[in-house]
Amino acid sequence: MRPRHIPSILQFTKTIWLQAAECWREKQHTAVVVDGTVGNGHDTLFLAELVGERGHVYGFDVQESGLANAQERLETAQVAEHATLFHAGHETVADKLPEGTLVSGAMYNLGYLPGSDHAVITRARTTIASLQALLPVLMPNGIITVHIYTGHEGGTAEGDEVMAWSKTLSWKEYRVGRYDFPNKEINKEHLLVIEKL
């Protein structure tokens, strides 16, 4: 049984996003967020419900089956009008976002799409390109959460490169946090959180 007082990475991620949404509401801010890895749309739905009727989610994925599942999930929850899904890699984010868009936050779950071809995975090169492209359009106090999985081939290498990239971000401009379980030996995972000052 999972310890009651230490949240899972998914729980901790949602807590961070709920706190961010509270700030949006206090400032009466219309939130625009990015789901960099739509998958089957679980996070996309979470984000669409979080941004509310005035906000919008832009989602990216390279697998049509996942996007179809995500679209169906959004339509069932009656929030599809608050999301735009792109059949494209997240490295195209700067080209796909409407010109002048400021982003309140972005969420990434690296690795592969559950229930699909495990050979189709996110890669450090495109992940870092996407993250780098988002930084200039991220609003002050905007957040980026990156859930790094290492239990698949290529996962550790991608995670190491993304972590190394995050260490290059200026302390004067960003805060970078990390949450993980140091004693988890199999399928280690990490949460990287970036906040723009």
Rank of each mutant, 00 (worst) to 15 (best):
A119G: 12
A94D: 12
V38I: 08
E99I: 05
L110A: 02
V51C: 11
G66R: 03
E91S: 11
H147E: 01
Y58M: 04
T145W: 09
Q71S: 12
V137W: 03
S116G: 14
T84D: 02
L113M: 09
L45Y: 12
G89A: 03
I143R: 13
H82L: 06
A77I: 02
L74E: 03
L85G: 08
G155H: 08
Y112T: 02
V33I: 04
V120W: 00
H118Q: 15
Q71N: 12
T44P: 04
Q63N: 05
A133C: 04
L74N: 04
G105P: 06
L67G: 02
Y149T: 04
E49M: 01
V38T: 11
R125K: 14
A119Q: 13
G154P: 05
A70N: 07
I144V: 13
G115S: 06
F60V: 12
G55T: 14
G142I: 04
E153W: 00
V93H: 09
R54S: 15
L138V: 03
R125N: 14
Q63D: 04
K96S: 02
V38K: 09
G155I: 13
S116V: 02
E49Y: 00
V146S: 10
L45I: 10
A70C: 10
T126H: 07
H82C: 10
E81H: 13
A77T: 11
L47W: 11
L47H: 09
A48P: 07
I148C: 14
Y58C: 03
A129F: 00
F60S: 06
G39D: 02
V93P: 06
E75F: 06
T37S: 07
S116R: 09
V103I: 15
A77G: 10
R125E: 15
E72W: 00
Y149R: 12
V146G: 09
T84G: 02
G41V: 02
I144K: 02
G155M: 10
A70D: 09
V33E: 07
H42M: 00
I143Y: 01
G89V: 13
S65H: 08
V62K: 01
R73S: 07
G36S: 04
V34N: 08
D61I: 08
G36R: 13
E64K: 13
G115H: 02
H82W: 13
G59E: 12
E49K: 15
L47M: 12
G151M: 13
L50V: 07
M107L: 14
F46G: 05
V93E: 00
V33W: 03
N141E: 14
S104R: 02
E153Q: 13
E53V: 14
I148H: 03
Q132H: 15
A88W: 01
P136Y: 05
A88V: 05
D61K: 11
P114R: 09
A88S: 13
A106H: 03
S130Y: 06
E91H: 14
L131Q: 08
L97A: 11
G155Q: 09
L45N: 14
K96H: 05
D117N: 14
N40R: 13
R54P: 01
L45M: 11
N40W: 02
Y149G: 10
H147V: 15
V93N: 07
H90C: 05
A70W: 04
L138I: 03
I148W: 00
E53T: 15
I144F: 03
L67S: 04
M139R: 09
E153A: 11
T126G: 00
M139V: 15
A48C: 07
